[in-house]
Design a protein around this nucleic acid. Structure first.
Length: 888
RNA sequence: GGGCGUUUGGCGCAGCGGGAGCGCAACUGCCUUACAAGCAGUAGGUCGCAGGUUCAAAUCCUGCAACGCCCACCA
């Protein structure tokens, strides 16, 4: 096949499939040797995942960046991998087993892990296949997984090093406990939900009356936790409560004497001013308990069921217990009153259960030594965020960072490599498993918990590149170039990568962090499965093709932090996306432009572009400027600008004007024709290269049909470098074509206004001075062709026909002879309107130019420009007025 | 409570100190031998509101409003 027998329709499904195979077979997705380095790691999607719009945008940005760098001859590799996603996967496997009537506790840890691996192998490949279909040029041959043996070793070394360096410790803490997943959930993973609740006012009897009062009233949203109360607090700034400090109350139900004390946590104005303190079930109460030496009484087990020792309440769930407690207080006339009270409750981001603050043994990373360096590299700009405003998000988070709870009570994940000897109390973190105690020889027991998923993914930039056993592999490829990710994991992931990378590799993990906008549904709400308003990128690809989806996504990359995606969804299925459809129109336009070139290749022989018309000089000049703006735009991650520039050039300049202008040359003598062919092929070729990172499939499909190629694939062909093309820049030529465009547009506008058929030939005269006249005369035949003119005369002495329309442009006046075809009242009205607009602008400028402040303070070039513009306007108004005077 | 973002023609967005733009939709005329998934043309906005800085403000500052996001807290 070649350009001249391209099929009329561009069939995305068929072509994309073929081209994808070509790229995979070609082996060009692997690292290429080059100058400089552009290593990029893909944010590892969950192994259970399906591609969503966030991934589609993320991966499109990365691929555009990576393909651009590869074409420039930069050493490039895009590393692929998936994340084992502890809680997410375990939850899904759990659910699946439950459907089969299997309880994970019944089959035990090993069998359950087998089920997890089965799941991983079954679903892990889906998202990888989807990434392929998007055209992403990742290194599929070397896929990573956060549970690979090598990766697991790296995780284990990190744990052991930090353990031995004193950065990892074990402690009792209040953690957010999910009673359903039976695991701790980090603060960052918990989600607040506002709920309508109540504030119960409970009476606690005083041991001895204070100021004649027999009891105090505490206010609580969680009466069930009163079983674990070990104190009552008042505000230190509350004079009314001062007398109660040091008094003792008898806690009802399980009689127990507990003290009243003052603590700054208490807000005197809220509730009753008395706060019941439950150190084992509330973070603030825990802190108060620490300060006032209160006992920590844990009343719930791991499923949030009341433990032994509480009589009838034992065995109750939180909800049951709450009702029972309230009933008890009511019965004993100790329920003072109940207020409505909205508050937010933490929920598990996986299973949505309400979380229980729970006191337990957990592992922590001490962040004091890590946060300083991680702050410095961002402040200094070594690591920079795009857009810049995310720098502050990162720094603020880093500043407020608390120790990181890394243990999770799950089975699926990296098991904590700490071993205990129950016989002699020996304990250590080991890089290799051990069975017996090195001290006393008794059997060892390994910690049951696994690590937070982010603990392993924080190593992503270097554990995927041979660290720690094969440091040569990283050489020259770490730090990575860019990390493209969503803003909601700046803290969870980006910050932790910086901390761990600095600690273990002494390098930053990446130079640039690119934060893309969150894609919202059409109505501005978040896309979510439960709402059924999510768009599946695969549906978009099936409907419009991968290139169209990619191009549309790139146009959305601006400074914005949210973008609305215009897709219509009906009953969960994609109906259409106007913008993606428009992008497909652009793909088709590119295809058809190539077909046009192909249809005019008779007699073509290869050769360099040559300038034989101002149009040639013009398009080459525009091309040179395009390469400049696209190159700089991609380097600066301004993909929206890049997409707009490409569209503007290809459609409005190359197709609308250059191809049209070239038609005459193609019908000319053999020499002229050949030069035109060579120029068309050259510009098309260069444009395809510039378009390729954004729209890889269609550009490759066309490029491989070009008469000659300098590479086996467009994806490894040379990038049109701005410096190479710069000599083509030609301001004179651009001006000349601007004049041509103005003339043709003037005639078309006249036709449209008076309803004249394009088939009706018109006689046109253009009054222009020497330089302009010469420039336009050289395009005379083309103008006649494009505007369908019977005659075109150009010169300084041309005059408007008695019955003719006038267009006043900078540097020329265009007259169409309309003798006998037009109502001149309309032409007069139009000119009057135009004159009024010109006068308005002239007056505004005149006012500005007579302002002494402006003349004194404005930049000279601005004054010069405005003065010139003013003179031009005066001239135009004079000419329009003169024409009006003659139109009687 | 703290922070961030958005507010520009019917819709989606760009511009972010010196002449209000783009795409889609609308309207008019064209099946002009690459493309009707097309071509040509027309219309439509006092750039959220109120102040301020400046010779000059959609663009910078302050305040306000609406919408959205993040963080913290809520006995």
């Amino acid at each position: 096949m070649s350009l001249n027998d391209m099929p009329k329709n561009y069939e995305t499904a068929e072509v994309e499939k073929r081209i994808l195979q070509k790229w995979l077979d070609g082996g060009w997705y692997a690292r290429n040797d080059g100058t400089g380095d552009c290593t990029v790691v893909i944010p590892p999607p969950n192994v259970t995942g399906m591609l969503h719009m966030g991934h589609a945008l993320d991966d499109t940005i990365q691929d555009t960046f990576v393909r651009f760098n590869r074409m420039r001859g930069v050493s490039t590799r895009w590393i692929l991998g998936t994340d084992h996603a502890g809680i997410a996967t375990q939850t899904k496997v759990d659910k699946r087993l439950k459907e089969q009537g299997i309880d994970r506790r019944a089959i035990g840890r090993e069998k359950f892990l087998e089920a997890c691996w089965d799941w991983t192998h079954e679903f892990g490949g889906i998202i990888v296949e989807q990434i392929k279909r998007m055209g992403c040029s990742v290194d599929f041959a070397d896929e990573k997984f956060t549970m690979d043996p090598d990766y697991a070793n790296a995780v284990r070394k990190v744990f052991c090093d930090w353990y031995h360096d004193g950065l990892i410790y074990r402690g009792k803490r209040i953690v957010n406990w999910c009673p359903s997943c039976t695991t701790a959930i980090s603060d960052d993973e918990a989600e607040y939900q506002d709920e309508g609740g109540h504030l119960w006012h409970l009476r606690y009897p005083l041991k001895e009356a204070v100021s004649g009062q027999e009891y105090i009233t505490v206010a609580t949203t969680r009466p069930e936790t009163m079983l674990g109360d070990t104190g009552v607090a008042v505000s230190p700034d509350d004079p009314e409560k001062a007398a109660f400090r040091g008094a003792t109350v008898i806690r009802p139900i399980v009689d127990r004497e507990i003290p009243i004390f003052a603590d700054w946590h208490v807000d005197a104005g809220f509730g009753s001013g008395f706060v019941k303190v439950t150190p084992a079930h509330d973070p603030n109460d825990y802190a108060m308990g620490q300060d006032h030496d209160l006992p920590q009484v844990n009343i719930f087990d791991e499923h949030a069921v009341v433990v032994e020792g509480y009589g009838p309440f034992t065995g109750m769930t939180r909800e049951e217990c709450r009702e029972a407690i309230i009933a008890w207080f009511e019965k004993h006339d100790l329920l003072d009153h109940v207020d409505d009270h909205d508050h937010s409750v933490m929920h598990c981001y996986r299973c949505d259960s309400s979380l229980e603050p729970w006191l337990s043994e957990q592992w922590f990373v001490a962040v004091d030594k890590l946060k300083g360096p991680a702050t410095d590299v961002v402040k200094s700009g070594e690591v920079s965020f795009h857009p810049d405003r995310w720098t502050q998000t990162y720094l603020t988070w880093m500043e407020n960072l608390k120790d990181w709870c890394i243990s999770r009570q799950l089975w699926w994940g990296h098991r904590i490599p700490v071993f205990y000897c129950d016989a002699c109390g020996w304990e250590d973190a080991l890089e290799e498993d051990a069975d017996v105690c090195p001290k006393c020889g008794a059997p060892l027991r390994q910690d049951e918990d696994v690590l937070d998923t982010w603990f392993s993914s924080q190593l992503w930039t270097f554990a995927t590149q041979g660290w720690p056993n094969n440091l040569d592999e990283m050489q020259g490829h770490h730090p990575t170039k860019a990390l493209v990710t969503a803003r909601d994991i700046i803290a969870l992931w980006v910050a932790r990568m910086v901390m761990s990378s600095l600690y273990f590799t002494k390098q930053i993990p990446f130079e640039d962090v690119v934060i893309y906008a969150t894609i919202l549904a059409k109505d501005g709400s978040r896309m979510s499965k439960s709402k059924g308003n999510g768009v599946d990128p695969m549906d978009l690809i099936n409907m419009y093709g991968a290139d169209a989806m990619r191009f549309n996504l790139l146009t959305l990359v601006t400074n914005n932090q949210d973008v609305r995606f215009d897709a219509d969804i009906k009953d969960g299925a994609l109906v259409g996306s106007p913008r993606t459809e428009a992008a497909r129109g652009f793909v088709t336009k590119i295809w058809n432009a190539a077909r046009f070139v192909g249809m005019n290749m008779d007699g073509y022989t290869p050769g360099e572009p040559t300038i034989q018309t101002p149009a040639d000089a013009w398009i080459l000049s525009r091309l040179a400027k395009l390469s400049e703006s696209v190159t700089r735009g991609i380097e600066e991650y301004r993909f929206g600008d890049v997409a707009r520039d490409l569209h503007q050039f290809f459609w409005s300049e190359f197709c609308d004007w250059y191809i049209e202008l070239s038609k005459a040359s193609l019908k000319d003598s053999d020499d002229v024709r050949l030069a035109a062919q060579r120029n068309l092929v050259f510009v098309l070729d260069q444009a395809l290269r510039l378009l390729h990172p954004a729209m890889p499939f269609v550009t490759e499909a066309i490029w491989e049909q070009l008469p000659q190629q300098d590479a086996d694939s467009l994806m490894i062909a040379a990038w049109p470098e701005p410096a190479t093309l710069a000599p083509w820049i030609n301001e004179e030529a651009e001006k000349s074509i601007d004049l041509t465009v103005a003339t043709v547009s003037a005639v078309r506008s006249t036709r449209a206004r008076y309803g004249l058929s394009p088939k009706l030939e018109l006689a046109v005269a253009v009054k222009a001075q020497d330089a302009e006249a010469a420039a336009l005369t050289s395009q005379s035949d083309l103008v006649k062709q494009l505007a369908n003119l019977s005659s075109l005369s150009i010169g300084p002495d041309e005059e408007r026909p008695a019955e003719g329309s006038v267009h006043i442009e900078e540097g020329c006046e265009i007259y169409c002879d309309l003798t006998g075809v037009v109502d001149f009242a309309a032409e007069r009205a139009r000119l009057e309107k135009e004159c009024a607009e010109l006068e308005k602008e002239r007056d505004r400028l005149a006012k500005k130019l007579s302002n002494s402040g402006f003349l004194e303070k404005a930049a000279p070039e601005i004054i010069e420009k405005d003065t010139a513009r003013h003179a031009e306007l005066c001239d135009q108004i004079e000419r329009v007025t003169a024409q009006l005077a003659e139109l009687v």
